[in-house]
């Protein structure tokens, strides 16, 4: 399952990294505390968060996430978009809550 599949199935909006949607999604991680995400997430995870500030990009790059999904209609800052495009991290947006989108992704990962 790649990022493009999630985008299509969940109606996510792509804010940047549209050319990197072929990345493989091996799992998911939900969380808003960067230190927790740093400690607990795995390479290939798609990260579900409501944090929209630019620090999220560095975490995602370090942990080699397949993409970031911002929940509850949060829009990324200009700096966040800039840094995510530089780093080639797909930045996706949904109006659904973190619980709901994590639930749906989980369902796609464990059919």
């Amino acid at each position: 399952m790649n990022v493009a599949f999630l985008v299509e199935k969940l109606g996510l909006k792509v804010r940047c990294g549209g050319d990197r949607l072929d990345r493989e999604v091996s799992g998911g991680y939900a969380g808003d505390l960067l230190s927790n995400v740093m400690a607990g997430s795995k390479s290939g995870d798609v990260w579900v968060t409501c944090q929209a500030h630019q620090n999220i990009v560095a975490v995602s790059v370090l942990k080699e996430h397949s993409g970031i999904i911002l929940t509850q209609g949060r829009e990324p800052d200009k700096e966040t978009i800039q840094r995510a495009s530089q780093e080639g991290i797909p930045l996706l947006v949904t109006e659904l809550s973190g619980f709901e989108i994590a639930g749906r992704i989980y369902g796609l990962l464990h059919p």
């Binding site: 998911g28 994590a102 992704i105």
Partner: peptide
């Protein structure tokens, strides 16, 4: 973890508020 917890609950019929 939060992701797994959300997934399991969602699969059991709990919805987001």
């Amino acid at each position: 973890i939060l992701f797994e917890t959300s997934g399991r609950l969602y699969a059991s019929g709990i919805v987001g508020c």
